[in-house]
Design a protein around this nucleic acid. Structure first.
Lengths: 344, 344
DNA sequence: CTGAAACGCCAAAGCGCTTTGGGCGCCCTT
DNA sequence: AAGGGCGCCCAAAGCGCTTTGGCGTTTCAG
């Protein structure tokens, strides 16, 4: 059932049927009702490609997930981000298109995506420092919102981000206030911008108290459970081990906890842990008593915000680069406590 | 840059340029080379919508994630499934389109998706018992592959699934062999088919040994960490508590472990736990020694398989309903041990 | 040397929709 | 009674691509 058939069935022109369906005023309410009823009854719904060709809009948003060869995993945070964004998209009648972009042919992929006309705008995930995608997309004139930011990118762009630096500075200060001096940082991959900022916040807090960062207490990898486990085991086995860990994700913190338990130590008593908490649907940080002391910032809310922003940007591109920064909340849980000496 | 411009630039017709680019034989290799070179140099890439209109194929696959109002979370397994499927899609030049389908207007949503022409086929996630989407999609003539199966659906359809029943039967038998008699089942939502089958496997194993299922030892909810924690706490606090848990996901098992530890009990010693393990990228079940005894089946592999199947089905629909069943592997980890009495 | 087949290319129609630029009645005004 | 305005509707062009049918030129067998 297409427009032509529907219009023939109604003895109306395609024009009139199209206008009736799309709410244009040039058609009487009587025929509009008649058309709508018939469309519903006969199960008519428009061909999105044809509509897109004619209007020049795809009614779809692209999400580009960088999947490099070393970094094959899809960030578990993505699902929640999408769930948040999806609400806004659905309300505005937009679809979601996912591109798993191999980062070897990045530029060509983005150019092709623009030319394809498949999307009206996109969300850029996992920005790096000086991310080349930002100037590229700006040049291509494709509206986009970055989830995160890109240090050392001079040109203006739209973004939604958490104040990662401040969150990790605060968390570090909290541990310092509890008299911890050997604080380890189990960070995400540091060519990603958020991880960089977290390290900076951590380092700032230490320096402000006259402490040095210790390379032996810092590591940077993909945020898996195993990574947290191994890093904690390794560091705790060293001489002059840390008394506290600052961890980049709940999943990784769970690995740290496993290592701590295996060594017969107790969280919050022998070893303190603060983690960042994205407030994922399937991994809530406790209900009444939080499991971990954490810097919490809902990735779902970020998704919602980014989507709203992008839709606005598509609607009125001149409304210029926008940005929104979420402040993370410091949640005090049972995984932190005052530092004290460990038995050797 | 579109076809017309490119062809004018080359002093060729659109026909010839199109054929040159798409590998048709009616054009000499000399001009083909010339055309390809120019296309590359001038950054030409086709408009997917126009191409789709003309060919009737969208070169895109839809993934429909049911997002009901109670069940707002996106299954964390989805990312890995997509990563697996994405490899196949990319190789065949297909894009991915996500629909977060509200299950209230399911039928209309699927009809509209078909009419929209946005996808050539789709993957159905989270099938339920007697899932109405299967007859609907069959009637619509849209190729699809179900990730999972649908009990009590009579018409044939294509699917990729894990042998959930057998996996949970084996796991239960393993616990029974270790002399456990009070075995709890912390299941996923049982209106989803996979959870149903798991419960059946569990019940079968018990009945085969002359044991009864005990409603107090069975529960069914969304597979979050908190759920595992609460269920385990509640059951362990009851009189005649379980000595073993059979858990539906790693995340939930982590919640169970947390509860067990909080009660001062030790996994594998006081309490045994077997979990299903989807082999997620960010949550590997150990490296040398598995954390949990588990029934493992890679959801990524399932994604790859489902994608291959769907692409084949799109290519030759008459190649009929296909199916592939993965057998889960029973991994023996440190979370299980012989049953013995607990101090009251 | 001729006719047919093969080759290399082109013009134009068509995919399903939107949108421009009218056109035809009818009512209201003057 | 004529003119203007408005409400309602239509025909046709166009979005960027593929594909059908055809046309001139070579090539090669008979």
């Amino acid at each position: 059932m297409n427009l032509k058939e529907l219009s023939q069935h109604l003895n109306l022109s395609q024009t009139t049927v199209s206008r009736a369906l799309n709410g244009y005023p040039e058609v009487s309410e009587a025929t509009r009702a008649r058309v709508k009823e018939a469309a519903l009854r006969m199960g008519y719904s428009p061909n999105a490609r044809a509509k897109g060709l004619a209007t020049g809009r795809a009614q779809a948003i692209g999400h580009v997930l960088p999947v490099s060869t070393q970094n094959e995993m899809v960030n578990p945070v993505f699902g929640d981000f999408l769930a948040g964004a999806g609400e806004s998209y659905a309300r505005a009648g937009y679809e979601v298109m996912i591109s798993l972009a191999d980062d070897t042919a990045e530029e060509r992929a983005y150019r092709a995506l623009r030319n394809s006309g498949n999307v009206d705008g996109l969300i850029v995930h996992a920005p790096r420092r000086q991310d080349p995608r930002i100037p590229l997309l700006t040049e291509l004139g494709l509206p986009f919102v970055v989830h995160g930011r890109s240090t050392e990118t001079e040109i203006p762009y739209s973004w939604v981000d958490t104040n990662n630096r401040r969150a990790f500075r605060r968390a570090t200060e909290f541990l310092l206030d509890l008299n911890h001096r050997r604080i380890a940082l189990i960070n995400g991959i540091e060519h990603l911008d958020f991880a960089l900022r977290r390290r900076e916040g951590y380092a700032e807090a230490l320096t402000a108290r006259g402490l040095q960062t210790d390379p032996a207490l810092m590591c940077s990898e993909e945020m898996t459970e195993i990574y947290g486990y191994r890093a904690a085991r390794r560091m705790l086995a060293g001489d002059d081990p840390p008394t506290a860990f600052l961890v980049s994700s709940m999943i990784t913190a769970i690995g740290v906890r496993r290592a701590v338990h295996e060594l017969g130590l107790e969280l919050g008593l022998d070893i303190s842990v603060i983690t960042h908490d994205d407030d994922l649907g399937y991994l809530k940080n406790g209900h009444d008593v939080p499991i971990f002391t954490a810097t919490r910032s809902s990735v779902r809310a970020a998704g919602r915000q980014a989507a709203e922003m992008l839709l606005k940007l598509i609607d009125r591109p001149e409304s210029g680069p926008m940005s929104h920064r979420f402040e993370a909340e410091l949640i005090i849980g049972a995984s932190t406590g005052p530092a004290h000496e460990r038995m050797p």
